[in-house]
Amino acid sequence: MLSVSHLTKKYKKSVANEDITFMVEPGEIAVLAGPNGAGKSTAIKCIAGLLRFDGEISICGYQNKDIEAKRLLGYIPEIPAPFELLTIWEHFEFIARAYRLENWEDKAVELLDRMELRNLRNKLGKELSKGMQQKVSICCALLINPKVVLFDEPFVGLDPHAIKELKEMIVELRNNGTAIVISTHMLDSVSEFWDKVLIMMYGKIQAERTRNSVEESGEDLEKLFFSITEGR
């Protein structure tokens, strides 16, 4: 479970996130939606423990900067950053060793197959296209069997097959009880599987809806999104 309480992130002159509070239960997919510059990526980075912040963030009961919390967290950055001189397979080996994983090879092979990377397993990071780098990044995050996964604009740069596969993986993760946060500015891309949506603007959560509440009220999510982001 992921709990974010009163998260505020300030830079010298600007406030990137202001008093953000939300929870993501195990087996729930929460979508952070908003236009460019709304503060989605900053919030995700704070949750991943990459940035300093004010407030409380806990992952399965541990503070997000604790070693135990890190062990349970998978993070897929917006811009993939593979190691230029490691092969794809060595990326997995590195993650497995660094996270002290046991018997990870089968899972790694499965991820390779699903992302159509099997034939490229001995290719170096520097030789990969942007899309392939993104696939490697996804595989590395999922290899650790995380209990909480943060996806920052995960579909950008992926080919149609990988998008389809990733969507299936996300649903499988949910079914296995993983708490998932997806940041995106394209609501269409997550329309099939979202459970909770948090619409962000100017660093704040402006609206929060669950799938049930939207279905019950018949509210048009897209309209709500544009009414907030464009002031219509």
Binding site: F83, L85, L86, T87, W89, E90, E93, F94, R97, A98, R100, N122
Partner: peptide
């Protein structure tokens, strides 16, 4: 192919050796 050694933090060192 392979880093071959390391567990936890020292994996980073062996990764550097591979690189």
């Amino acid at each position: 192919i392979g880093i071959g050694r390391g567990k936890g933090a020292n994996t980073v060192f062996f990764k550097h050796i591979t690189e």
